Amino acid sequence: PAHPYDRLKTTSTDPVSDIDVTRREAYLSSEEFKEKFGMTKEAFYKLPKWKQNKFKMAVQLF
């Protein structure tokens, strides 16, 4: 299930529990994912792991 970005980011005051914290981005809706990352999930997962992590750090999901 998708969760709002505000509850997934590492600085959230009301974090979602029971998620894989190493894959926070996977819980974003497709729309919100595209808004935050500027690309689709499919394109994101084709990137090298280090680049994925760099993007995730930039949007507080790492």
Rank of each mutant, 00 (worst) to 15 (best):
W50N: 02
V16S: 04
T22S: 10
D20R: 04
D14G: 04
T13G: 04
M57S: 07
A58S: 09
K54E: 15
D18I: 03
K56Q: 01
K34H: 13
R24C: 13
T10K: 03
P1G: 12
W50G: 02
S12K: 08
D14I: 07
W50S: 11
D14P: 05
E25R: 09
R7Y: 04
F37K: 00
S12D: 10
V16R: 05
E25Y: 04
E25L: 08
V16Q: 06
R7Q: 09
E31V: 10
S29V: 09
K46Q: 12
K51C: 15
Y5G: 06
Q60T: 06
K36C: 13
S29F: 06
I19W: 08
S17M: 14
K54T: 06
F37C: 05
S30K: 12
N53A: 12
P1T: 12
P4E: 07
K49M: 12
T22Q: 11
P4Q: 08
K56Y: 04
S17N: 12
T22W: 05
H3C: 14
I19V: 06
F55L: 15
R7F: 06
T10G: 03
A43P: 01
D14C: 13
Q60H: 12
T13N: 12
Y45G: 03
K41G: 02
K49N: 07
V59S: 07
T22R: 08
T10Y: 11
R23T: 09
K36V: 15
L28K: 02
M57G: 02
P15D: 06
S29T: 13
D20T: 05
K41P: 07
F62Q: 15
M39K: 00
A58K: 12
M39F: 03
E42Y: 10
D6A: 00
K41C: 09
D18T: 07
G38W: 05
D20Q: 03
E32R: 01
F62R: 15
P4C: 14
A43T: 12
T22G: 06
P15W: 03
T40C: 12
S12P: 05
S17Q: 14
L8C: 14
K54L: 15
Q60C: 15
E25M: 04
Y5T: 05
I19Y: 04
K34R: 13
N53G: 03
S17I: 13
Y27N: 02
N53M: 12
K49V: 13
L28C: 09
T40A: 07
F55T: 06
V59G: 02
D6K: 00
A43I: 11
A43Y: 06
K56H: 02
E25I: 08
T11N: 13
P48V: 00
P48D: 04
Y45W: 06
E42S: 11
H3V: 10
E42P: 04
A43H: 10
I19P: 03
D14R: 03
F55R: 08
L8T: 03
K34Q: 15
E35Q: 14
H3K: 03
P4W: 08
S17E: 13
Y45H: 03
P48T: 02
K36I: 15
D18E: 09
P15V: 05
W50A: 05
K54P: 01
T13Q: 12
V16F: 07
F62N: 15
S30G: 11
W50D: 09
F55M: 15
E35H: 09
V59F: 10
A43V: 13
R7T: 08
V59L: 15
R23I: 10
A2P: 14
S30V: 14
Y5H: 08
Q52K: 01
Y27S: 05
K9M: 13
K49Q: 12
D6E: 11
S17R: 14
F33S: 01
L61S: 06
E32I: 06
R23K: 12
T10H: 06
T11R: 02
A58M: 13
R24P: 08
P48M: 00
F37V: 02
K54H: 09
F62P: 14
I19A: 05
D14E: 08
V21G: 09
Y27A: 06
R23Y: 04
Q60R: 09
T10D: 09
K9R: 09
V59N: 11
E42K: 09
S17P: 14
Q52L: 01
F55H: 10
K36Q: 10
S30N: 14
A2R: 14
A58Q: 13
E32G: 03
A58N: 10
E32W: 05
K54V: 14
L28S: 02
S29P: 03
V21W: 09
S12C: 13
M57R: 14
M39G: 00
E42H: 09
E31F: 10
T10P: 04
L28R: 01
Y27M: 05
K9W: 05
P1N: 13
S29G: 09
A2Y: 15
M57Y: 09
A26D: 09
K36H: 11
L47F: 04
D14L: 08
T22L: 10
F33H: 00
F62V: 15
T11E: 07
K51L: 15
E31Q: 13
K49H: 08
P4D: 08
T11L: 04
K41E: 09
F44H: 00
E25F: 06
T22D: 10
T40G: 06
H3L: 12
F55K: 13
T22Y: 07
K51G: 00
L8F: 04
K54I: 15
K51F: 12
T40N: 11
W50T: 02
